[in-house]
Design a protein around this nucleic acid. Structure first.
Lengths: 205, 205, 205, 205
DNA sequence: GATGAATGAGAGTTCATTCAT
DNA sequence: TATGAATGAACTCTCATTCAT
């Protein structure tokens, strides 16, 4: 029970930190504000995390883990693609787009990009809870589909990479670097376009 | 001559600023260091630019302009695609990859991403000297090719968008968010793979 | 037993406190570290001592008392100076030097000097357990010797003061303000030199 | 002229620093207050001195130099001791006592003692501008007097050391570790007593 | 126009001290 | 009684920005 409060507070700090870092960036974010956001006093933050830097890393890691889990879960329909493959792909694509355009998701990308030179070790986050993992998971699914003869059976890793590229690449411009929200209908259109191209390029001949 | 010196100094300041901002990020960069990098005294920086913020915007704008020009120029071969279309596309793709993985280019992306929330007006840079312009220019070229019957004649804007997505999307993972340099041979492989998929998806039937 | 444990803990706290204060000085010493040194938790320190300041005073007092006792004991041989007076003085002088150059002794001096302006009441420690008391005790012994005709019978207080001055004064320079340990042989030489001058100045004509 | 202001300010900072350090001790002194004392803004202090530590060292050094000069000057009468040697010694002794009991002098001693463990390099100050130098200078004078047959011609270094010990040793107790001012008449008495013993111990037989 | 010097404002971090258990 | 956790108050140091020359 004693421990409970502790864990809650740690959680609150990590979430507050991510929120503030996301809003302000690493350098502009001030620990004072993070503490306020988490509803604790400044030294409490330091009792849990040694450093502003450590706080940053941990907050990023926690956020990345959560986000990755959602994305992996979004691939589920591909595990047993009943019926129309194209429809399944579109469904998955649509959900991925929605997840990818979510505020926290965009913020995480921004933070990773902007601080990767100051915190080279956040690359581990990218490797372990980032896009690499998603590509792998997708490649696994596509490999099954290839075996089942429903996709060109050459290189599932490349296929996964290109599926995600076709899907997410256009986002950057459309969302203005992640600052603008898109309508769900727009996302649907983008999903269809990406899947369309993907099927032309990778569908079973 | 006086005027000349002034212009030179302005140029030096803008370049020094971009260098330092690229290395440190907006907030961590300090005007002192920018001045040192540019070889002038700190107040001289303020004589040319009112603000650290203004300095940032101008430095970004100048860098973006230069970078965009190079990219647009790289599309040149597509204007008159002598002979093999696939080969031309691969050549263009290869050059684009090289430009896109260049240090300054990556730094610019990082800066845009990290500061877009604090400087919403840098979106103008993206629109006027960024990827949007490149996509447009490429779409123009592809439209010509479509008219010439060498590409599927449906939607050149979408084609351009997907060409760039297939080409540049995989870069993020391969360069570790732009922190790792790639061998030219690797770039060649990536160019071939992207063009291969593009041709399958968009080649004339 | 409980009481015993309490007393032990109090003792441990006082000793830990002196150790840390000696190493760090009053202001730099942090209660956390004192608690660690004493093997207790931080609030336990506050259960025994109201204040960091109180803790400081008590630790100093305890240390001073111990140190004074040793010094007074060192004067013992002068109570019944069998045989050669000069030899007895040299012996006493030697032991005093050794005590005076001891680490804890030097630390105590340092602490008294540095904090006397912030804790005027530690002057009581000096008066009750410090050099003043030693001078008095020595004066008592010298008075007896004067009565016995073995010393100039004028002013035993002055004699005691000058004996200690001749003995300890040179220490400051030789030990580099108490930071360097001296060889026992060096101490012997210093004792002899001090006694030599003392006897010339205060020996019975 | 530009430089003039700079030098003045540096001087003011060093003096303010010594004042505050003397009053508060190293750790308790805060740069803010030093700046106020010096009549400048806090960052100005940092423009002149890199560090609080550096500031401390420099302030100590400057104060030590000034103080040493005064003490050395006080030995002047011994250079050509016209007439009564005892009277000359008493005069010198008296002045030395006055210098030694001066507020700044006491403060310097306190600071040296209290911080020597944190700043081992301030031992250089002691060597170059502290008591060691004074002892040397005095030894030089006494050697001359020994040559002139007016002092026991054995060991002028030891003689100087013991003269100062007899003179300054009793100060510690009398001034309560340097916190109490003494009347000039008391100083006179102490000077006479010290010289008296010194002459008995070191006077030409 | 260019610069050395100065400053107001603010950030990270530490610490003595107090609750609640 | 002893302790893990939390906090208010300071303190060092940095930086964008402005004068005065």
């Amino acid at each position: 029970m004693t421990t409970r409060g502790r864990i809650d507070k740690r959680q609150a700090i990590l979430e507050g930190a991510f929120t503030v870092f996301a809003r302000e960036g690493y350098a502009q974010a001030c620990v004072q504000e993070i503490a306020r956001e988490a509803g604790v006093a400044k030294p409490t933050v330091y009792n849990h995390m040694t450093d502003k830097a450590t706080l940053f890393r941990n907050a990023l890691e926690a956020a990345a883990r959560t986000i990755l889990e959602q994305r992996i879960a979004a691939l589920e329909p591909l595990a047993a693609p009943t019926g129309d493959l194209r429809a399944t792909l579109e469904e998955v694509a649509h959900v991925l787009l929605r997840l990818h355009t979510d505020g926290r998701s965009c913020a995480l990308r921004r933070l990773l990009y902007s601080e990767v030179t100051h915190f080279p070790d956040i690359l581990d986050i990218v490797k372990e809870s980032g896009p690499d993992r998603l590509t792998q998971a997708l490649a696994d699914r596509l490999a099954r589909l290839a075996l089942a003869g429903r996709l060109r059976a050459t290189d599932p890793d490349l296929a996964a990479e290109q599926f995600l590229a076709l899907l997410l690449g256009p986002l950057e411009a459309r969302t203005q670097l992640g600052t603008r929200q898109l309508e769900d209908s727009q996302l649907r259109v983008m999903a269809v376009a990406a899947v369309d191209a993907f099927v032309r390029a990778w569908g079973a001949r």
